[in-house]
Nucleic acid binder design. Sequence first.
RNA 1: GGCCCGUUGGUCAAGCGGUCAAGACGGCGGCCUCUCACGCCGCAAACAGGAGUUCGAUUCUCCUACGGGUCACCA
Length: 548
Amino acid sequence: MDTLKLAALLFPDVTKTPEDMEALFPERDLPKGAVVSRAAPSPTGFVHLGNLVQGLTSERMSHQSGGILFLRVEDTDAKREIPGAVETLIKALRHYDIEFDEGATVDGDHGLYGPYRQSQRKDIYHIYAKKLVLEGLAYPCFCTEEDLANMRDEQEAEKANFGYFGKWALWRDRSIEDIEEKLSSGIPWVLRFRSTGSLENKIKFTDLIKGDLELTENDIDHVLLKSDGIPTYHFAHAVDDHLMRTTHVVRGDEWLPSLPLHIQLFKALGFRLPKYVHIGPLMKMDGNSKRKLSKRKDPELALTYYKAEGYPVESIYEYILTILNSNFEDWRRANPALPAADFKFSYKKMNPAGSLFDVMKLRDVSKDVISRMDAKKVYTDVLSWALEFDLEFASCLSKYEDTSIAAFSIGRGGKKPRKDFAVWKEVKEYMGFFFDELFTIEDSYGDEFSKDDIKAALSMFLDTYCPEDDRTVWFDKVKAVADSLGFASDMKLYRDNPEAFKGSVADISMFLRVAVTGKINSPDMYDVMQILGHERVETRINNMISSL
RNA sequence: GGCCCGUUGGUCAAGCGGUCAAGACGGCGGCCUCUCACGCCGCAAACAGGAGUUCGAUUCUCCUACGGGUCACCA
């Protein structure tokens, strides 16, 4: 085969050489051990947990080592192009603290190793495609979709392996005359890799997470360039990660099966193989079995879901860290106040198998995270959530800023902070009663209490209530009400002999609580009344008395 | 079906030839307590199965089972 002629036929416009590229994109000048890694998502408009897991791992490995993190947009599939997807992507990742040092930006590129959109790198890919053709390592294939469908049917019938190989590789050894003829009549073609691999041979490989692997060689002549001249993932991966000088490829382990092809490709192109970090999939429980989280079926895969639920970004970040590095939880317990970025992330602590995504655990993490925030921060975050998802609540929050912050301050900041909500969505239910606009009586008094007693308790309390009282004095007054109505003011006494009383001071408190908050359960009554103010407390209690 | 990866309590997971097999979430019970939310104490709960190697296997090897992934001109 005259490869010189073939290359000229296939790539008449390519004048540059791989050497030119090497000169254009030299090795990076970085300290030893610095990791160059990337996020390389395809812009489908759907940003999901997988992107975050991948991005976070790359980001930590790069930045912790003093290296570089860049963003490359893998937009080689014209059919899936969604306008605005890149912007969505960048914003979402930035939202979760993943900042890129270089790469695609909303309206262009930043960095010396671009372009960072694969759709703009066609010329570069063709230089290497031509090189492979010249070396007899790639060839054009003119099979139609129909040809390939037939191939597959036959393979199925014969119970043969699937794919373009062996006798099925129709164009692998065609004469240059055949090729020229097709070419001149304008038949579209793809460029295929001429694989020399065999199923008989194994290759040894070490993945940073999975450890030592033994893989079967690839014997399929995979497509390198599609008929529009745009590369497939495999070819783009090899060319880009080499020219962008990536040292560590972090990706989902669904790529493991094509790793033998990638290894072949790097070798054929004369590139040094990067390190690979294959992350296990995120799973969910589906009936009795686990399965990979799916874009189609699982709304909780999308990042927008967590935003709408009102999970703080810090919670998601911390939860993903606990999934990725099993020792993160211990570290967090030991260092509750440190930023998560101080944690020493290690791929050695990553689990080779997939993990089940556990919402209960996420909630627990989230409660912890929120309990560590100060009231002002909670207020700000809840407000910005509400502005997008609950306008009625948002208007109360901004109208009563001081009250809101005071409410968020209850039980916050101490050694044992309250953990009342895991997501912003739950905040309204927790503290909406502070706002007259949202206050309603939700719970009622049990039948075991007489209305007269309740009324008496409420008005007696009002008679003595003084907002200037401190906590102890306040509670002594509540106890006094209990005593005078035949309710126990001492809980121990009551527990020892409940029959001797109508109830206890706990019940008296409950009378007040329902009147003031509308609920059986609430944060500390003293604090609540302090925040509500004398006037509101009085009004609400009086309203309750007259409604009984 | 081929190829590959994985398998410690319900879930996330320590463990890296000798442990009474950590811890966390969830569950259950209790304590604390004016309710709730915390916090504290305790309980139940696991090395998929079978062969080897070894004085000794959760840990090493093989087989089986099960789970998952992947076999596109998608990434």
